[in-house]
Design a protein around this nucleic acid. Structure first.
Lengths: 209, 209
DNA sequence: TCACTTTCATAATGAACACTATGGAAAGTA
DNA sequence: TACTTTCCATAGTGTTCATTATGAAAGTGA
């Protein structure tokens, strides 16, 4: 063992002729538009501008490529969504930011409409079990994070004792999922923002403890 | 033209050896579980208990079979969903019934979890454009029906003038879509019913005109 | 019984699928 | 320049896809 980090060490032989990062981005956009199972490797290679052998040596196989795209999609910044939820001023604030961000994110002109996690594999064959499990896990983790944040607010008196943390968290995440479908159906940004503001009436106002 | 109703007239030749209605139901359940593009004809014939040629002579092709399943799924009773929405006591009542019915339907033990319209083809290739358009149309029609019902309530004084009919309708339909995903992720009936009740806080109370 | 019509089971169709074997070209090191 | 390593392009692999050709079987009408 000469180096502990082979990825940093200078690689011998002919270097990659394409930008791995850009190719991954292109694959992400393709999956985002047309789903996981319903996107063929041929469509991926066309979108990425590389040939099939290059895809397989650089990314493994179709499943690994998708999971790497998903990782990039779900964690674009330094902090994860559960961390951002935990650190928000209140559960209510976290929910509001989640909804407003979704309204804006799902209707961006430079990206496919809707949410990859919501739409890439809402149903599928046995061949996509692992991918669907990975998507479900992201949804579960985010929902549970918001639920725990709401439970904390109830304990600390920022939300009334009668509030239902699970129901509030599930409702908020259901809205995020549903807004993705609406965005895919062509509903615009303003309509989704109005929706988000209207839905926040279901959250009890923050209280001082 | 001897008969106006050829389906009633005695058919010549060898009769069907399987129950067309039961086969259609089996196909519906299969599509419901594993989606449109992601369900193969081989899986369909296995679930329906018939061979491929029987499927094609009885139902046309895979797309026609799905559309017929969708028709049965979306219109099981004598009245359509938009009709039920229009005839409800109020827009608020319609929304509440929609949400509670969804909570119960999406978590029934004897059916696949979630909603066929929400999950069968949330994304897909060009081969499923017509199917996806048919699903979108159902979502659009139902959403618009609820929106019109809310607009009427505002006109007639049952909802405050400040209420946003489009936002209320979109929010309610987004919740239905999202509840389907939650049900598929394993969230139970009680949790979805709590969610529905919590979400109804976003609807202004009905008022006398 | 005998045409006639339609369905059945078997098997095969070409196309698309995910994935890879192979050999030469490219770019580094010595 | 010789050599090593890796990548790329071509062309395939076997499998599965949706769909159908074929001929025997099972009914109806005369």
């Amino acid at each position: 063992m000469e180096t502990l980090e082979p990825s940093v060490a200078k690689r011998l032989g002919r270097p990659l002729s394409f930008d791995r990062d850009k190719a991954l981005n292109a694959a992400l956009l393709q999956f985002w538009q047309t789903g996981y199972e319903t996107t063929s490797v041929a469509e991926l290679t066309r979108a990425m501008g590389i040939t099939a052998p290059s895809l397989y040596t650089a990314f493994g196989d179709k499943e690994s490529l998708f999971l790497e795209c998903l990782e990039r999609y779900a964690n674009p910044g330094p902090k994860t969504t559960p961390e951002l939820i935990a650190e928000a001023r209140s559960a209510r604030q976290a929910a509001q930011q989640l909804l407003e961000l979704s309204a804006r994110w799902f209707t961006r002109q430079d990206f496919p409409a809707g949410c990859l996690v919501a739409s890439a594999a809402s149903s599928g064959s046995v061949n996509s079990q692992r991918v669907r499990a990975a998507l479900k896990k992201i949804r579960d983790v985010n929902r549970k994070a918001l639920q725990r944040r709401a439970e904390r607010d109830i304990r600390e008196g920022h939300l009334p004792r009668t509030a239902n943390a699970q129901a509030l968290a599930s409702m908020t995440m259901a809205l995020v999922q549903g807004m993705s479908t609406l965005a895919r159906d062509g509903v615009g940004q303003k309509a989704l923002l109005d929706l988000a503001r209207t839905a926040m009436r279901a959250w009890p106002e923050d209280q001082s403890p």
